[in-house]
């Protein structure tokens, strides 16, 4: 091996990058376990602190983790869509701002949202109506789902005549490390209200991950994107049609995931390794001399493949 290069110490910056890579690749709900291992491997608190302070916020947002607000006012989702500041996340449903500790994955305190952080009353009507419908759907479809509807574009639009954009985020995680199994479902639906075309464009991204690690390490990573659209109507009618679009696409996607699983044993798996040999009997190990002989004969006759 190239000893000289191996001996050359990694720079602190390289170590931070490597530590971040491990943290960001943690399966759903497992970043704390990964952090513990990374910390002990690094054996350098300075490097670890820098890596974790950079990686945790990214991980929390991409996994859209859900934190309980301290005053029992419900849950807040940590996403890039409601991020006011590195540690501050808006919960439009309760009109509060949650201050979070990313590394501890904890909500430390909440404060009332300021007026300028909230959408205009016109937008809020659409947001609130959609929130109610999506919440109803999520309650029905996900045993442990959390959702939020956020305005990401044009939150100060105060009446008809301008475009604006809402985002519906749905996050469901099931963590049972005692059963060596963790998983998460995350969907993000961008809902663009196009005033001039009087249409609402819906774009969805769904990501499903699962990790099973009893005496092994098996992970599912599934992603799907889709698009749809509906008419620009009253806030209530929009809410109904958008939530039914979401319901329809997510139900269909789940069915296609099921189909992928059903296809595994018969087609996918068999292509790699059969359950039994082509001869449909176990391999004749006791009789391998026969193979050696046929080999010798085919070699002699020059008919070897």
């Amino acid at each position: 091996m190239a000893e000289e290069e191996e001996e050359a110490e990694l720079s602190e910056k390289q170590k931070v990058e490597i530590a971040k890579w491990f943290l960001l690749n943690s399966p759903p709900g497992e970043i704390q376990y990964v952090a513990k291992d990374v910390k002990s491997i690094l054996n350098d608190d300075g490097v670890y602190d820098e890596a974790s302070s950079e990686a945790f916020p990214l991980y929390n947002k991409s996994h859209m983790i859900c934190l309980q607000m301290p005053d029992r006012s419900g849950d807040v989702l940590v996403t890039s869509f409601n991020e006011l500041d590195v540690n501050a996340f808006l919960d439009p449903r309760s009109a509060q701002v949650a201050i979070v500790d990313h590394v501890k994955q904890d909500c430390i305190e909440v404060r009332p949202a300021k007026d300028e952080e909230l959408p205009s009353p016109y937008i809020e009507e659409f947001r609130c109506a959609l929130d109610a419908e999506v919440m109803r759907y999520v309650d029905e479809a996900y045993p442990k789902g959390v959702c939020s509807v956020l305005c990401v574009n044009g939150k100060d639009v105060d009446g008809p005549g301008s475009d604006f954009e809402l985002v519906v985020v749905i996050s469901a995680a099931r963590l049972s490390p005692q059963n060596f199994c963790n998983g998460s479902w995350r969907s993000v639906w961008n809902v663009g209200f196009k005033d001039d075309q009087q249409r609402v464009e819906v774009k969805g991204k769904i990501q499903v991950g699962a990790h099973y690690f009893e005496e092994g390490n098996v992970q599912l990573d599934a992603k799907h994107e889709c698009e749809d659209s509906t008419l620009f109507q009253s806030p209530e009618d929009c809410a109904l049609s958008i939530s039914s679009i979401i319901r329809h696409h997510e139900t269909e996607y789940l069915a296609s995931l099921e189909a992928s699983y059903l296809n595994l044993p018969d087609t996918t798996f068999k292509d790699l390794r059969r359950k039994l040999p082509v001869t449909r009997t176990l391999f004749p190990w006791h009789n391998t001399m026969q193979f050696s002989l046929t080999r010798d004969i085919s070699k002699e006759l020059g008919i070897e493949k």
């Binding site: 479809a141 996900y142 045993p143 442990k144 789902g145 469901a172 995680a173 099931r174 199994c181 963790n182 998983g183 998460s184 479902w185 499903v208 699962a210 990790h211 099973y212 098996v218 992970q219 599912l220 997510e250 139900t251 789940l254 069915a255 995931l257 099921e258 699983y261």
Partner: peptide
């Protein structure tokens, strides 16, 4: 197990 997990997250329709 991973399939079971998916069905726990969002049970079939």
């Amino acid at each position: 197990k991973t399939r079971e997990m998916v069905c726990t997250l969002r049970p079939p329709s």
